[in-house]
Design a binder for these strands. Structure first.
Length: 197
DNA sequence: GGGAAGATGTTCT
DNA sequence: GAACATCTTCCCT
């Protein structure tokens, strides 16, 4: 348990994106808002491979929006979609614009605060963080976290090891896209109730 | 400056 | 399961 709150290393993210996406399952997303700490276990991720992946934002080239993807691994790539935020971790060496989208979390710490941020309309706990836009709302993640270092304790947002409980991994095709929608780049913890639909 | 598309979510029927 | 709210980016005129 002593490694639970230790951030992942730069080298963890500096690897093939499909491996990083798979290995991020079971890790902890840690959000520090002043004295308040929110923690969620990553239960669903998707890989976006870069320039040669038609579904990846980086496929259109280097723009102001995709800038951070072309830089160092282990940073937060945030983008806005239809009024919602989505958070990704950049992977692979600088110049290779790949990343992993975090699609769902299992809330572990700070549930009441997440509930408050999501709004009182939420009735089921599984609806707090089972989707990329929802978890960003529950964790108060926005464009101010664009490019944040995910590998240091001092960061408002980082990813930690957690305790590596055993679980089964399921691989399926990515959700909500039209290009290259057949690729098996989505990883989930099998039978976890917080996986998105 | 306009318009369409998009890695979504909520609210209806 | 379908409509629509929402908003940034990119491409076109």
């Amino acid at each position: 348990m002593e490694n639970t709150n230790q951030p992942l290393s730069y080298d963890f993210f500096n690897r093939p994106t499909l491996e990083v996406a798979r290995d991020l399952l079971g890790k902890l997303l840690v959000r520090q808002i002043g004295e308040q700490v929110l923690i969620g276990k990553i239960v669903e991720s998707e890989a976006y491979l870069g320039s040669y992946d038609p579904a990846a934002h980086a496929a259109v080239g280097r723009t102001k929006r995709t800038e951070i993807l072309f830089g160092e691994p282990g940073r937060a790539y945030i983008f806005q979609l239809r009024g919602h935020h989505c958070v990704n971790a950049t992977t692979e060496e600088a110049g290779n614009p790949a990343c992993v989208l975090i699609r769902a979390l299992e809330p572990l710490l700070g549930r009441e605060y997440m509930w408050q941020l999501r709004g009182s309309k939420i009735t089921k706990e599984t609806n707090l963080t089972n989707g990329p836009g929802r978890l960003c709302q529950a964790f108060e993640i926005n464009m101010s976290h664009y490019g944040v270092d995910l590998t240091t304790l001092n960061s408002p947002l980082y990813i930690a090891w957690g305790n590596s409980d055993h679980f089964e991994i399921e691989v399926t095709s990515r959700i909500g896209i039209t290009k290259a929608a057949d690729k098996p780049f989505r990883f989930t913890i099998k039978n976890n109730p917080f996986v998105s639909k």
